[in-house]
């Protein structure tokens, strides 16, 4: 359906938006961003693809079912804090660890970040599930 220009642009825009959404997710803890907006941005990348091409090709691009995405996200969010419970601490007590990659380049990762990844996946999955099912209605003339 989309025009040639849109299709061509989408090919380049899609990875850029996806990268940007992951960037939003990761920087969210210190700058504006986070799992919610990151997931929405990622969803918009797929929606752009759907507008430019069609639903089947978007589904191919997704590679997994949107329900799988939702479920995985929820599991990650739920599980992010399981081992803190084994430690005897309340659920959702955060744990942090510093990954030393080189002497001056280190990465601080923690359970809230894992939780945020879960949020990202759920938001992405839900948005795609609903938008794709709506486009499904459109295909059939009523």
């Amino acid at each position: 359906m989309g025009s040639l220009i849109l299709r061509k642009a989408t090919r380049y825009l899609f990875p850029v938006i996806m990268m940007f959404s992951i960037y939003l997710l990761l920087r969210g803890h210190n700058e504006p961003g986070g799992g919610f907006v990151g997931g929405l941005a990622a969803a918009s990348a797929f929606i752009l693809n759907q507008l430019a091409f069609d639903v089947p090709s978007t589904k191919r691009l997704m590679n997994v079912d949107s329900l799988t995405l939702i479920g995985t996200g929820l599991l990650i969010a739920l599980g992010s804090s399981v081992f803190t419970m084994l430690d005897g601490q309340p659920y959702f007590s955060s744990h942090w660890a510093t990954l030393r990659i080189t002497s001056d380049w280190q990465l601080l990762i923690g359970t809230p970040l894992i939780f945020d990844i879960g949020v990202y996946l759920v938001v992405l999955g839900v948005t795609l599930a609903i938008l794709l099912s709506i486009s499904n209605f459109r295909k059939s003339p009523s």
Binding site: E31, P32, F115
Partner: peptide
Amino acid sequence: RNIVNVILVD
């Protein structure tokens, strides 16, 4: 440093 996000995820 983003307090809103820390509230949300922690």
